[in-house]
Amino acid sequence: MKMHKFAKLAAVAAAGALVLSGCANNEQPTGGEGGEGGSELSGTLTGIGASSMQAAQEKWVAEFMTQNPGVQVSYAPEGSGAGREAFMGGGADFAGSDRALKEDENKAGEFGRCAEGSIAYDMPMYISPIAIIFNVEGVDDLNLNAEVTAKIFDGKIKKWNDPAIAELNPDAELPDADIHPVHRSDDSGTTENFTSYLSEVAPDAWPHEPDGEWAAEGGEGAKGTSGVVAAVTNGTGTIGYADASQAGDLAQAKVGEEGNFSELTPESAAQIVENSPVEEGREEHDLAMELNRKGEGYPIVLVSYAIACAEYQDPAQAELVKAYLSYMASEEGQKAAEEAAGSAPLSPKLAEQVNASIEAIK
């Protein structure tokens, strides 16, 4: 798959730290159930979390507020870890996270805006491939398998013309140049998904436990998805990982085993999710996925969750959360995210489960 140069990235990098919000007062509602006269919702809704779904959240916020002019929604793409921390501390009505809460984190009474004794629900909302992006002079196409990828990011493969890379790319003119890996510096669900892939598919080459905080030594750290993209774009001989929606026109590597490389497409990434179960032992309506990265499809995939209270202290706030999450999970909302970010829509089966979880929120 050949991608061309880097025209779109300055705007992406500049937007990375912004709070995504809008004011619908000067917009005309689009009609339908949430159109003019059709919505009586009012209030303010705050979300904080994953930068991976920044483009999708921009679209969701704008469309929802157009349909519900009495509601002010903001989403700050500060990273998955920041989102979970804010939600747990009472600083956000919902969190966006590229990983679900762990079972020992999802304890009744631990969430600032939830009712006493309430747990939280993890609800998949956004499915997207994680692109391996690179900037190497003279190289547009790159094949990588899990073992080579792990060794590059762990600092064991240091040159672009290393025999292990050359074997996978016999037609490429690989330079005798240093490799400069770029990783997330913040607590990131994208990092946790990327390292989960390395750990599951190439355990002998990746000795670190999957985690949202980067564990390997060396390399360059950059904050947020846009920070990684900017560092790879502006560097020389660089390689990094980022949600595909923000990879822009950077070259993107195919990933797989030798002779069986997977193209990076939303549909291919969605295959992995479709064939993955909900984790055993979870409460009803808590939809943490156990991703099977060895199944058919592009294996480096993230599922970004909306994390919300099972029961809120304020019933009116619960209604706002339910309305916004219902829009995100709807066919209309998923199509909007697909258009804005290139994500894969929820499958009918998963959408049914997500909508049941939203309906159960009190």
Rank of each mutant, 00 (worst) to 15 (best):
F94E: 01
A95F: 04
A95I: 05
A95V: 08
A95L: 05
S97E: 07
S97I: 11
S97F: 03
D98A: 15
D98C: 13
D98G: 15
D98Y: 10
D98M: 11
D98L: 14
R99E: 10
R99A: 13
R99V: 15
R99L: 15
A100P: 15
L101V: 13
L101I: 09
L101S: 09
L101P: 08
K102E: 14
K102I: 09
K102M: 13
K102V: 11
K102Y: 15
E103I: 13
D104I: 06
D104W: 12
D104F: 08
D104S: 14
E105P: 08
E105K: 04
E105C: 07
N106A: 02
N106E: 06
N106C: 01
N106F: 00
N106T: 01
K107V: 15
G109N: 05
G109M: 07
G109R: 02
G109H: 03
G109Y: 02
E110L: 12
E110P: 01
F111T: 12
F111Y: 11
F111V: 10
G112P: 04
G112R: 03
G112E: 03
G112T: 03
G112I: 00
R113G: 10
R113E: 14
C114E: 02
A115W: 01
A115F: 00
E116R: 10
E116I: 13
E116C: 05
E116V: 13
E116S: 13
G117Y: 06
G117I: 00
S118F: 07
S118N: 06
S118P: 05
I119W: 00
I119G: 00
A120P: 00
Y121G: 02
Y121W: 07
D122E: 12
M123F: 03
M123K: 05
M125N: 00
Y126M: 08
Y126W: 10
I127W: 01
I127T: 08
S128V: 10
S128I: 14
S128Y: 13
P129G: 04
P129C: 02
P129D: 02
I130R: 09
A131D: 07
A131G: 13
A131Q: 07
I132N: 11
I132Q: 12
I132D: 09
I132H: 10
I133W: 06
I133S: 09
I133Y: 04
F134I: 12
F134P: 08
F134A: 11
F134K: 07
N135Q: 12
N135E: 10
N135W: 01
V136A: 11
E137D: 14
E137M: 07
G138D: 06
V139Q: 05
V139H: 04
D140W: 07
D140Q: 15
D141I: 13
D141C: 13
L142F: 00
L142K: 03
L142N: 06
L142M: 06
L142Y: 03
N143K: 13
N143T: 04
N143I: 04
N143P: 01
L144I: 05
L144W: 05
L144S: 06
N145D: 15
A146K: 05
A146D: 00
A146F: 08
A146V: 08
A146N: 00
A146T: 07
A146H: 05
E147F: 08
V148T: 15
V148A: 11
T149K: 06
T149F: 11
